[in-house]
Amino acid sequence: MKKIDSITVRLPYITQKIFIGCDIFDFALREIIAMRYDKLIVVVDSNFYKLIKSNLERCSENKIADIIVISPVKKYKEFNACSEIIQKMVQAKMNRNCCLIAIGGGYVGDITGFVATNYMRGIDFIQIPTTVMSMSDAIIGKVAINFGGIKNLLGSFYSPRYTFCDINLLLTLNKKEIIFGLVEVWKHTLVVNDNSIARKIADYLDGKSYPDIFFDLTKFSLKTKKKIVENDFNDKNGIHKALSLGHTYANYLEQKFNLRHGEAVFYGIILEIILSLHFNTINQDKFNSIKPLIKKFEENIGMLHKIQTLINIEEIINNLKFDKINQGNHFTFVLLTKNGFCVKSNVTSGNLREAFIEFSKFNIL
Rank of each mutant, 00 (worst) to 15 (best):
L245N: 08
A242G: 11
Y252A: 04
K291I: 15
K227W: 01
F266K: 02
F180H: 12
I274C: 08
L277S: 06
K241S: 13
K256T: 09
Q284C: 01
I301W: 01
T281W: 04
N231Q: 11
F287Q: 09
I213L: 13
K219Y: 06
L190H: 07
K226H: 07
Y204G: 03
L277N: 05
S244M: 10
L222G: 04
V229F: 08
A242M: 11
Y249W: 11
D216G: 00
I301A: 05
Y249A: 04
K187F: 13
K286I: 14
K187M: 14
P292T: 13
L271Q: 01
K219W: 00
N280A: 07
G268I: 02
F215N: 03
D232Y: 08
D203P: 00
D235E: 15
V265F: 02
P211L: 11
T189F: 08
V191N: 11
G246P: 07
I301R: 00
T189M: 14
K256D: 07
N280H: 13
T218P: 00
D203S: 14
L182R: 11
L275S: 06
T224Q: 05
A202H: 03
D206Q: 12
T189S: 15
I274S: 02
G262N: 03
K241P: 08
L205S: 03
E272T: 01
L293G: 06
V183F: 10
K227D: 12
D232I: 10
V192G: 09
V185S: 14
K226G: 06
V229A: 07
N251V: 07
I274F: 01
K295W: 09
N288T: 08
K295L: 12
S289T: 14
T248Q: 08
N231M: 05
G238F: 09
D235F: 04
E230F: 08
F180D: 15
A264I: 05
I270H: 00
G207W: 10
L222D: 04
V185T: 15
A202V: 02
S244R: 01
T248H: 12
V229R: 01
A202E: 13
F233I: 06
K219C: 03
L222A: 04
F266E: 02
